[in-house]
Amino acid sequence: MKEKENTEEFYKKLEGQLYDTASWPSEYLYKFIVKTENNQMPKISSIFDNTGAVIKNIESKNGKYTSVSIRVIMKDPEAVITKYKEVAEKVEGVISL
């Protein structure tokens, strides 16, 4: 239960920071890291289907991990957080940066 509280607290803080630092709608850069062998990149891409997102994948030097960068116009901080939560829920082992 404590982890869920910490996560919600993190998202609440992020929402405030996003409102303070940008005017909305605005371009937002998501960054995720996933294990390459689990082939999770298509799952992340599908979450951003039909949003006009530009997605860039970069494999680590040893090929163990893949960095996924996504640039997309989001309407407000709540929409940003909704996508973070959706990725966390649907993509196993993802690290959000």
Rank of each mutant, 00 (worst) to 15 (best):
Ile73Gln: 11
Thr82Asn: 02
Glu86Ser: 10
Met1Asn: 10
Glu5Asn: 10
Ser69Val: 11
Asp76Tyr: 01
Glu59Pro: 03
Ser45Leu: 03
Ser23Leu: 11
Ile55Ala: 02
Ala79Thr: 12
Asn38Arg: 05
Val54Ala: 12
Glu8Val: 00
Asn62Trp: 12
Ile47Gly: 01
Tyr30Pro: 14
Arg71Val: 04
Val94Tyr: 04
Glu89Met: 10
Lys35Val: 10
Trp24His: 14
Ser96Cys: 08
Lys64Gly: 01
Glu37Met: 11
Phe32Ala: 00
Asn39Pro: 08
Val87Gly: 02
Val87Cys: 00
Glu37His: 07
Glu27Cys: 10
Glu89Ala: 08
Tyr30Ile: 00
Thr82Pro: 00
Trp24Phe: 08
Lys43Pro: 00
Ile81Leu: 05
Val87Ile: 03
Lys56Pro: 00
Glu89Val: 05
Asn38Pro: 05
Met74Ile: 08
Trp24Thr: 07
Gln40Tyr: 07
Thr51Arg: 10
Ala88Val: 13
Ala22Phe: 15
Met74Gln: 01
Ile70Cys: 03
Lys4Gln: 13
Gln17Leu: 13
Lys61Asn: 08
Asn57Glu: 14
Val54Phe: 14
Pro25Cys: 06
Asp20Glu: 11
Glu15Cys: 03
Asp76Gly: 02
Glu8Ala: 08
Gly16Phe: 01
Lys12Glu: 14
Gln40Ala: 09
Gly16Gln: 13
Ser96Gln: 12
Val68Asn: 05
Tyr30Asn: 01
Glu9Asn: 15
Thr7Lys: 10
Ala53Trp: 13
Ser67His: 05
Asn6His: 13
Gln17Thr: 07
Asp76Trp: 02
Thr21Ile: 11
Gly93Gln: 04
Lys13Leu: 02
Phe48Pro: 08
Thr51Asp: 05
Ser26Pro: 06
Lys85Phe: 01
Asp76Ser: 02
Ser96Asn: 11
Thr66Arg: 05
Phe48Gln: 07
Thr21Leu: 07
Ile81Met: 03
Lys35Ser: 03
Tyr84His: 07
Ser60Asp: 09
Ala22His: 13
Lys75Cys: 06
Lys31Val: 01
Pro25Asp: 08
Val94Met: 04
Ser26Tyr: 11
Tyr11Met: 10
Lys2Arg: 12
Val87Met: 02
Pro77His: 14
Lys43Ile: 07
Thr21Cys: 03
Arg71Ala: 13
Lys13His: 15
Asp20Pro: 02
Lys64Trp: 15
Glu15Thr: 06
Lys31Glu: 13
Lys56Asp: 09
Tyr65Phe: 07
Lys13Met: 03
Leu18Thr: 14
Ser45Ile: 13
Ser46Trp: 09
Tyr11Asp: 15
Leu97Arg: 01
Glu15Asn: 11
Met41Gln: 15
Gly93Leu: 10
Pro42Arg: 00
Ile70Trp: 15
Asn39His: 07
Thr51Ile: 08
Ser45His: 03
Lys12Leu: 02
Arg71Met: 10
Gly16Trp: 09
Ala79Leu: 10
Met74Asn: 04
Thr21Tyr: 08
Lys61Ile: 12
